[in-house]
């Protein structure tokens, strides 16, 4: 089932220099999608558009068939409830002055979701593998990996359909990274994940589908195993060959 469809979307801060040209793809429910590209590929711009932080210069983004409209409050409330986000730097993405409880409660409060918020927060903490007593502590009392778990708890507390993850494991140490990827894999049984990353290894470990971006265009898209086994575009081949591997 199609959750989000991006249809011929272009974007540029000025007319002369578009950063995104005619990009189309769909996000399907239950299929983790990886957006892979290097700096200048336009992957962050796509993310901003999907987060509703920018409007496309042309083209349409549809959510459950309905065109995205940032001015339609009712639509945006529904959209935000369904689409949450996790960011790269867990040191900057948590308000240092809020306790973990207030941080995780933010979507529940902002979207005026009824129900027992405390119970929802405790469940989210359990889902990301943090103890319940984390609730009354501040972000600075946690390590980088733990902070990213808190950020994940915030993203899933409102039980969204899709989590947009922006380089969500890139800033973490290897040993932490693999655990957060495992956690994401676990969570993706219930929630679809769209991972934006420059790291093919992480994307390959988590996503069933991949889109390869270069200079604001999609150069290749499809099932992860197909693309890894038989890359068609020269850029994809170069990217794959550039990933350092462990010695055999």
């Amino acid at each position: 089932m199609t959750l989000i469809s991006v249809d011929s979307v272009a974007f540029g801060y000025s007319r002369k220099e578009p950063v995104l040209h005619d990009v189309s793809f769909t996000v399907k429910k239950g299929v983790n999608l990886g957006l892979v590209g290097e700096s200048g590929s336009g992957k962050s711009t796509i993310l901003k558009l999907l987060l509703g932080l920018e409007r496309p210069s042309s083209g349409v983004i549809r959510f459950e068939g309905q065109p995205m409209n940032l001015n339609d409050r009712e639509f945006m409330r529904r959209y935000r409830r369904a689409v949450q986000a996790v960011f790269q730097d867990p040191y900057s993405s948590l308000d240092p002055r809020q306790k973990v409880e207030a941080i995780i409660a933010e979507p529940l409060r902002a979207l005026k979701i009824p129900g027992d918020h405390r119970a929802a927060i405790e469940q989210a903490l359990a889902d990301v593998g943090l103890p319940v007593d984390a609730i009354s502590r501040y972000p600075h009392e946690f390590s980088g990996g733990q902070r990213q778990r808190i950020a994940l708890a915030r993203a899933i507390v409102a039980r969204p359909q899709l989590v947009l993850a922006d380089e969500a494991v890139s800033a973490l140490d290897l040993s932490t990274r693999i655990r957060i990827v495992d956690l994401l894999k676990d969570l993706s049984k219930a929630i679809t994940i769209l991972l934006v990353s420059h790291d093919l290894g992480v994307v390959a470990a988590l996503c069933e589908e991949i889109i390869i971006l270069e200079k604001g265009r999609i150069v290749e898209a499809g099932r992860t195993e197909d693309i890894l086994a038989r890359p068609q575009h020269p850029y994809t081949r170069k990217l794959l060959a550039s990933v350092p591997r462990m010695p055999a």
């Binding site: 409330r77 949450q84 986000a85 993405s93 308000d95 902002a110």
Partner: peptide, 24 residues
Amino acid sequence: MDYITAARTAGSSWPSIVFRHVLP
């Protein structure tokens, strides 16, 4: 800061961002 973007994508309104995040 990213936590402001996080607040926006969580659905927080601008007044709520001012009073809950910016002023504190």
